[in-house]
Design a binder for these strands. Structure first.
Lengths: 215, 215
DNA sequence: CCAGGCCTCATTGTATACAGAAGAGGCCCG
DNA sequence: CGGGCCTCTTCTGTATACAATGAGGCCTGG
């Protein structure tokens, strides 16, 4: 594997996992030394992170990990809604029925894995992948990939509880059923509902003060 | 200005203007020599072009200018519709009324500048900028920027005729009026109509065989 | 004591040298 | 005569050295 890929993945994961909190200054020489690569591949990694929006240029002086504010989360969800609704709609029209029938069964049985958040997130991830494939639209997939990267960082704040996961699985189930039925409108609306509830949950968690974030 | 910016802008413009047609192999040493920069900033430029989707990695051996197919145009417009409709909708809710009142007048008088395509495109560009500002959503603006870059390349194929531009100005006028009125739904639907007609015009032009593109 | 300018140093931007990998071409063997 | 292997070339990926820019601090003058 290339050194620039290692640097990119490492930094991206560390940002997503809040090991590198927002506002952290990423000096080139410092990070290159820490990650054991030279400045050239590190700069490529930072360039990619900048394109992802995970880091931002700080007025001439270096790059800093981008902030996560209530406003930025709302903005992110606005874009996410636009893209995921369209993706769900297209998937309903173009899907391989068998794929989503299997996913339907999995979501029906999802209550069994609510103890293990990661198992559930993995199921959702496979669902997202199936939707991506079904849309057959690389541009859409690419745009969604970026959005989901940001979402992963926010998830660390939300700390979904089992109750929320149970509700989420029901919401997902409806989306899957709509896609299986080829009902594009329902798929879009059900996605809208799911994202609305998901955003509400994030905002609720944050207002509860379980986490400290920048205004 | 930085050398990497020069390389990026030059290459991007050349790709958009079809001076570098799809399939062109961009060797690092070759392009670096041609543009008068060293390989390091050139690589950063190529990295950005790759993030934009204007170039793609060609199985290990170098980067090539990405293809423009009928399918890719349709896919692009699917994403564009999702994003622009949402942007128009948000703009209608959050706009500075005065800004769009001025734009309304300009679009009403737009038939005067249909002789000069560039003047009209400039007006549209300012309209896009006003919408971006009104949404107040950097994520959305960023996603739209990428889409519009691809659109600029496609425009070179479409060769809008005066008749199409007249119709387009009427479509834009309705969008602007909806935004002025704060009617989010109408803004979204009018945008949908405009993009539908725009896509139809592109596809019509291409089927007419005025241009040769890859399948 | 405060403000403005200069100097210094750190950090980014650029160039180039080197190494490793992958493909094309030719040669040898079957 | 064809196919496979080997080699050579050329490209990308990486490291490091150098240049330029901007920020921060200190000194000096008012």
């Amino acid at each position: 594997m290339r050194a620039s890929d290692i640097a990119y993945r490492t930094l991206r994961d560390e940002i997503i996992e809040w090991k590198l909190p927002p506002g952290t200054v990423l000096g080139e020489v410092e990070q290159a030394a820490r990650l054991g690569v030279s400045r050239t591949p590190l700069r490529e990694a930072l360039s990619r992170l900048s394109a992802d929006g995970l880091v931002q240029v700080a007025s001439g002086r270096g790059l800093v990990v981008s902030e996560v504010s209530l406003g930025s989360i709302r903005e992110m969800f606005e874009v996410r809604q636009a893209l995921e609704e369209r993706a769900a709609s297209l998937a309903a029209q173009r899907r391989d029925k068998a794929v989503f029938l299997l996913l339907k069964v999995e979501f029906q049985e999802a209550s069994a894995l609510l103890d293990d958040r990661h198992a559930y997130y993995d199921l959702v991830s496979r669902f997202d992948g199936a939707v991506d494939t079904a849309t057959g639209n690389p541009y859409l997939v690419s745009a969604l990939r970026s959005v989901r990267t940001h979402l992963a960082r926010i998830r660390r704040l939300a700390q979904d509880d089992p109750e929320r996961l149970l509700a989420a699985s029901a919401e997902h189930l409806l989306i899957v059923e709509a896609i299986v039925a080829g009902d594009a409108e329902l798929a879009a609306h059900a996605t809208h509902v799911h994202l609305y509830r998901s955003l509400q949950n994030v905002l609720k968690t944050m207002h509860a003060g379980h986490v400290a974030i920048t205004a």
